[in-house]
Design a binder for these strands. Structure first.
Length: 439
RNA sequence: GCGGUCAUAGCUCAGUUGGUUAGAGCACAAGAUUGUGAAUCUUGGGGUCGCGGGUUCGAGUCCCGUUGGCCGCCCCA
């Protein structure tokens, strides 16, 4: 059986694996629906150009890309953002605002495998289009928190780091840096947590050493961990932009606090997210123990829809990956034991009884009950064992005696009690015992 | 792309200084058991010992290569 192997980095989902994945997706979907987000989907294969346009040429190394039979350069999607920007951009003028969309989809990246990272994975993506103010961020960060909280994770398990690229820009402008230098500094800020002072190396190589006084201010700003600190540093009668921006911050944090979510939020200007296309608030979710890679990440990208050929349309979004998230649930013992037990297991005597049982089995299934029976003739003892093993709540016994009397023996496998039910009343009896389902 | 480490049944693992036809538990299947539940007993299927080469009279075992897993680095939309 070693002839054909799974491609490196790809995952296979046997039933016991898929049931856990489905459980995660189910709660994400439920949560997004509760927040009023509409689900969409889109092609797995996209023009390569879509990703080059967004992220530049060098991205190609990490893409599953190839030339199709029509000579088109294509790539398996590595993320949803460009795709959803295209979808929304194409109908922007017709879509009711606010545009709140989500998806659960599979993505592919040609990367080396690591804990919490493979070459294929799923993401929950949620985005709000058309809302420039922090009200959109409130909505999305609340959704993010609930998408994790729905599984029983608390503020002891994860937190959301919140930062703001706008504020960084405004602040660095007041320190006299031009746009290119600001981006260089932000690159250093992004790497600072991991590399310390080394992080400024790239900046120094490009622009020469950063002025010591400026650097000191950058480092102080990078360590800001609260709104009050932020206000203190920026409090001086500064530019109007900064004053307005601080008002946005107060609105955002106030909103989250009013939702009772403040305990999940940590202001942390050390987060800037490397991606150049983020334009405002950015946020990332991590496990509290700091053992895993990021659980989720997102932010505002007001220019991207237009850059990809659509109208100017402000946007915020985030994504949760399924791999790290599943690891965290596992660590915290929050992976429920999900079993697909039938409602009813039919125990069948012989061939004649089987014919009679089929009628009842099909009627129950058509009514929405999950019904199992042995496909082949099996000794009664085995069937009762199989019925118990299956986890079914009820066993229906189709034996010769019952058939002769026009009844079915109705056994409650939990209480180990049984009684006869006329064959034409089985459906009602099962409904009664198990509760209304479908039908 | 780089480094470390590992690879024997579906799973977890034994396998002696290199020595007959490669083992156990679990799981699966059949029977004991043609009408009642987590037990017991018996039996069975299942392996190119990841793959390829080398050393040797002889390789699961030693050597080289390769593929793949895991962990980390780079990267992380």
């Amino acid at each position: 059986m070693a002839t054909f192997q799974t491609l490196p980095g790809f995952r296979e989902f046997y039933p016991e694996d898929l049931i856990r994945r489905s459980h995660i997706f189910r709660l994400w979907r439920q949560t997004a629906n509760a927040f009023g987000f509409a689900e969409y989907d889109a092609p797995v294969l996209e023009p390569l150009e879509l990703y080059k346009a967004k992220s530049g040429e060098e991205i190609e190394n990490q893409l599953f890309s190839f030339t199709d039979k029509g000579g088109r350069e294509v790539a398996l999607r590595p993320e949803m953002t460009p795709t959803v920007c295209r979808l929304v951009g194409a109908r922007a003028s017709a879509l009711k605002r606010p545009i709140k969309w989500f998806s659960i989809a599979e993505f592919y990246r040609y990367e080396r495998m690591q804990k919490g990272r493979g070459r294929c994975f799923h993401q929950f993506n949620a985005d709000i289009f058309g809302e420039p103010g922090p009200e959109a961020e409130i909505e999305l960060i609340a959704l993010l928190i609930q998408c994790l909280g729905a599984f029983g994770l608390t503020e002891q398990d994860f937190y959301v780091r919140l930062s703001d690229r706008n504020l960084w820009f405004y602040y660095l402008e007041t320190l006299g840096l031009d746009d290119a230098r600001i981006r260089g500094v932000l690159g250093a800020v992004d790497r600072h947590e991991k590399y310390g002072d080394e992080a400024f190396k790239a900046y120094t190589e490009q622009f020469g050493p950063l002025d010591a006084a400026v650097k000191e201010k950058v480092l102080a700003f990078l360590h800001v961990k609260s709104l009050s600190e932020l206000e203190r540093i920026l409090g001086a009668p500064g530019a109007e932009k900064i004053t307005a921006r601080l008002a946005d911050w107060r609105k955002l944090l106030g909103g989250l606090e009013a939702m009772g979510l403040a305990r999940f939020i940590e202001v942390d200007l050390g987060v800037v997210r490397g991606l150049a296309y983020y334009t405002g608030f950015v946020f990332e979710a991590f496990d509290r123990k700091g053992e895993l890679r990021a659980l989720a990440g997102g932010g505002r990208y007001d220019d991207l829809v237009e850059k990809l050929g659509g109208p100017a349309l402000p946007a915020v979004g985030f994504a949760i990956g399924d791999m790290t998230f599943a690891l965290l649930l596992e660590q915290r013992g929050l992976t429920p034991n999900l079993v697909q037990a039938p409602d009813v297991y039919c125990v069948i005597g012989g061939e004649a009884e089987r014919r009679a049982a089929f009628a009842g089995i099909h009627a129950l299934r058509a009514a929405g009950f999950r019904v199992e029976y042995p496909l082949k003739e099996v000794a009664f003892g085995k069937q009762f064992k199989a019925a118990a093993d299956s986890g079914a709540k009820l066993a229906l016994i189709y034996g010769a005696d019952e058939l002769a009397k026009g009844v079915v023996k109705f056994r409650d496998l939990t209480e180990r009690s049984e009684h006869n039910v006329p064959r034409d009343q089985i459906l009602a009896a099962v409904r009664d015992a198990i509760g209304g389902r479908a039908g």
